[in-house]
């Protein structure tokens, strides 16, 4: 699948932002006043920035409001509704922390639940797509939720929890990759089932329908850049999970160590998210003799 920068930025940044909101909603870190304001601004900036980035992916962003209408059936619509609901609940919660030094616990739990549901809805946009076997698996929501929880804990300065969650994230990430590598075969979709000609013999594309490229090939048969997949996996794992976890547990806690850990994590997650798209093979590639 085409790794569109707008989508990679959207899922990564908004995941971190909503992850931070989950922790803040639960009362971690227990800050008030201007410190709370700084944390809330960071969370809103990341979540809001991600959502804005996602609209760059739309060809008709002026109609984006219509996307709130189909929450009964569409995960993308649910994600939109939930993200706005989360922001709407988070704003008064954060304002109470900032202006009145007061934590409304009930509202906080609501914020945490909504933020978690938002991240889950984001992941289901991908996990629901059966035509991309690598994504169509429970590890996709697990990965997105752990990204949000671990990254959120990192931003919320929950050192030990963050280190543990980062290691868990690394484990799920490795499993997602390994499982992902055999998912296409497991799905059982081949050139033979795609054409129905398997009863006659082995099927191979002889002539493509067109000499040039088209939307389908650009969007769903993106094979460029898989060459460095192994190296990127290592980079993503090291920078996104292992190094930040090590920094958090080995170095004395402070803004510098946390800052480095956050930046490393962000870089690692971006690399991982790029792979999430670039490595995902859509079954339509079978009609074009490639995956």
């Amino acid at each position: 699948m085409h790794p569109a920068p707008s989508i990679i930025l959207f899922t990564t940044l908004s995941g971190l932002g909503f992850g931070l909101m989950i922790w803040m909603g639960l009362g971690f870190p227990g800050v008030t006043g201007w410190t709370a304001f700084a944390f809330a601004a960071l969370a809103c900036g990341l979540a809001g920035g991600g959502l804005v980035a996602s609209t760059f992916h739309l060809r008709h962003p002026e109609r984006a409001l219509k996307a709130f209408s189909q929450w009964r059936s569409s995960w993308l619509s649910r994600e939109g509704v939930l993200s706005v609901a989360t922001l709407a609940a988070f704003a008064p919660y954060a304002a109470e922390l900032w202006l009145y030094d007061m934590r409304l616990a009930g509202l906080g739990w609501l914020v945490a639940a909504l933020a978690l549901a938002t991240v889950l809805a984001t992941s289901m946009i991908y996990a629901q797509i059966r035509a991309v076997p690598r994504w169509h698996h429970w590890t996709t929501p697990a990965l997105f939720v752990l990204h949000a929880l671990a990254g959120g804990a990192l931003l919320a300065a929950q050192t030990y929890v963050a280190a543990l969650l980062l290691l868990a994230l690394g484990g799920v990430q490795i499993y997602h990759w390994r499982k992902g590598d055999i998912r296409f075969r497991e799905a059982g979709t081949t050139a033979e089932t795609a054409t129905g000609l398997g009863r006659m013999g082995r099927v191979r594309l002889l002539e493509p329908p067109h000499t040039g490229r088209n939307y389908l090939l650009r969007e769903m048969v993106h094979v460029v850049g898989r060459r460095h997949a192994e190296r990127l996996r290592l980079i993503s794992l090291a920078a996104g999970c292992l190094l930040p976890a090590f920094l958090l547990s080995a170095l004395p806690s402070g803004h510098l160590a946390a800052g480095i850990a956050v930046l490393l994590h962000l870089g690692g997650v971006l690399a991982g998210r790029w792979l999430f798209f670039a490595e995902a093979e859509h079954v339509v590639g079978l009609y074009y003799g490639r995956r």
Binding site: M1, H57, L58, R59, H60, P61, R63, A64, K66, A67, L76, I125, Q128, I129, R130, A131, V132, T189, N214, Y215, L216, E219, M220, H282, V283, V284, Y287
Partner: peptide
């Protein structure tokens, strides 16, 4: 007139039956 051009339906189709028009964005 309701299509925002997100392209998710084309991803969901296993057959490649949907194509986003490059000029109209629908």
């Amino acid at each position: 007139s309701d299509c925002i051009g997100c392209g998710l339906c084309a991803w969901a189709c296993p057959y490649g039956a949907r194509e986003m028009d490059a000029a109209e964005g629908v």
